[in-house]
Amino acid sequence: TTLHFDLDGKKLQYTGVSEEIARLVEELKRRGVDLKEIVRILEELLK
């Protein structure tokens, strides 16, 4: 799965993300978590 974000005018793309992580990101968005925080979490998970 590939995730795309537009953060402060920067286009971020994460490829090869598992379905689980993609679902987690969608859930965080639904809960109103700040996009910067979501990206920070995502980068930690993908290390």
Rank of each mutant, 00 (worst) to 15 (best):
T1C: 02
T1A: 08
T2E: 07
T2H: 06
T2Y: 04
L3E: 01
L3H: 02
L3G: 01
H4T: 15
H4M: 10
H4Q: 11
H4N: 11
H4F: 13
F5V: 04
D6G: 01
L7R: 00
L7H: 04
L7Q: 03
L7M: 09
L7D: 04
L7S: 03
L7K: 01
L7W: 05
D8S: 03
D8H: 04
D8P: 02
D8W: 02
G9V: 01
G9D: 06
G9F: 02
G9T: 02
G9I: 01
K10P: 02
K10F: 09
K10E: 12
K10Y: 10
K11E: 10
K11R: 11
K11Y: 10
K11V: 09
L12M: 08
Q13T: 15
Q13R: 08
Y14S: 00
Y14I: 04
Y14C: 01
T15G: 06
T15L: 07
G16S: 06
G16W: 05
G16N: 15
G16F: 07
G16Q: 08
G16A: 07
V17W: 01
V17G: 01
V17N: 01
V17C: 02
S18R: 06
E19G: 09
E19A: 11
I21V: 13
I21S: 05
I21M: 10
A22K: 05
R23A: 14
R23E: 12
R23G: 12
V25F: 04
V25P: 00
V25W: 02
V25C: 03
E26H: 15
E26P: 02
E27M: 14
E27S: 13
L28Q: 05
L28D: 01
K29P: 02
R30D: 07
R30E: 07
R30Q: 15
R31G: 09
R31H: 07
R31F: 05
G32D: 09
G32W: 05
V33N: 06
V33C: 05
V33W: 14
V33K: 06
V33Q: 08
V33R: 07
V33M: 14
D34H: 09
L35E: 10
L35P: 11
K36C: 05
K36S: 12
K36V: 12
K36N: 12
K36H: 14
E37G: 05
I38S: 01
V39Y: 03
V39A: 03
R40H: 09
R40Y: 13
I41Q: 13
L42T: 04
L42A: 03
E43G: 05
E43P: 02
E43Y: 05
E43S: 06
E44S: 13
E44P: 04
E44R: 11
L45V: 08
L45Q: 10
L45R: 08
L46G: 03
L46W: 05
L46F: 06
L46A: 03
L46Y: 05
